[in-house]
Simulated scan of single mutants.
Amino acid sequence: MELWPRAAPEWTRTIGVFDLETTGVDVVSDRIVTAHVGLLDESGRPVRSASWIADPGIDIPAGATAVHGITTEHAQREGRPATEVVAEVVAALAALFDAGIPVVAYNAPFDFSMLKHEALRHGVEPILVPRPVIDPLVIDRRYDRYRRGKRTLSVVAAHYAVDHAAAHEAAADAIAAGRVAQTLAARYADGMPLTAAELHTRQIGWARAQADSLSEYFVSIGRLDADVDGSWPIR
C-alpha cells in the first residue's frame, strides 16, 4: 500500500500576514515607516490587505532608506501621523487574533516588539501577548537545522521557490513570509503540529533552543559579549 504524506495543517487555509519597515533595528527607540497587514487564502492569494506609510517623527537614516526606499521627505509628504498608523495596525492585528486567525511574521519578535514599543510611545493599548503567531524563520531552523547559508527572508523564500520580487517592501515581505509558512507546513506536514495554537507553543521552545545554540556558538568563537534573546514571539 502506498503511503501519502499527511495533508498540510488546517491553519494554512486562512492566514494573516504582517510586516514592518522601520527607521532601524532597535525595537525600543526606532520607529515604524511602513506596515502591512493582510489575509491569504490556502493558495497564498491575498484576499484582504491594508498598507500604511507613517511620518515617524524623526529623520530616517540613509541606511534605512537604502533598505526600504523611503526617505524622510517622502514619509513627511505621504505619511500619516504615526499615532494613527500605529493604532490602525494594532487594531487590524487584534481583529485577526480575536477571530482565531494565525498571523505570520518573519522573525516575529522584531515586528511585534517594535509595534509594542510604538504603541506605548503613542498612547495606544499594545498587543502584549500576540497569539497564535507563525514564524517561518523559527520553523525553517527547526526542520532544516543543518542547512548552510543565510536565513534572511529573501534567501529562505528562494530556497522554497517562493516568489519575492520586491524585498523590503512591507506588503511583498508579508505575503512572501505567508507563502513560505504555507510551503513549510506542506513540506513538513508529517511532523508539523496540527493546530496553530500547538505550533505557537512549540515555537516558543524552538526559539529558545535556537537562541541557546547561537549563544554557545558565540562563546566558542570568543564573543563573550553577545546578547542573544530567545524570547518569542515578542520581547
Rank of each mutant, 00 (worst) to 15 (best):
M1I: 01
W4D: 08
P9S: 09
V17L: 10
F18N: 02
D19R: 12
T22I: 06
V25F: 14
D26T: 07
V33E: 03
L40R: 05
R45P: 01
V47Y: 00
A50M: 04
P56F: 14
A66Y: 03
H68A: 14
H68L: 13
T72R: 11
E78I: 12
V86W: 05
V90Y: 08
V90A: 10
A94T: 06
A95H: 00
A95N: 01
I101A: 02
A105R: 00
A105F: 02
A105C: 08
A108R: 04
F112C: 01
S113W: 02
L115C: 05
K116Y: 15
H117N: 10
H117Q: 01
A119R: 02
E125Y: 03
P130H: 05
V133K: 02
I139F: 03
I139E: 12
D140K: 09
D140L: 06
Y143H: 14
R151W: 06
R151F: 10
L153P: 06
D163N: 14
A174P: 03
A176K: 05
A186V: 00
A186I: 05
M192C: 14
M192P: 00
L194G: 05
T195N: 01
E198H: 10
E198T: 13
L199N: 03
T201V: 08
R202E: 15
I204K: 07
G205A: 11
G205I: 01
Q210I: 03
L214M: 15
F218S: 04
V219G: 08
R223I: 13
R223P: 02
P233C: 05
R235V: 11
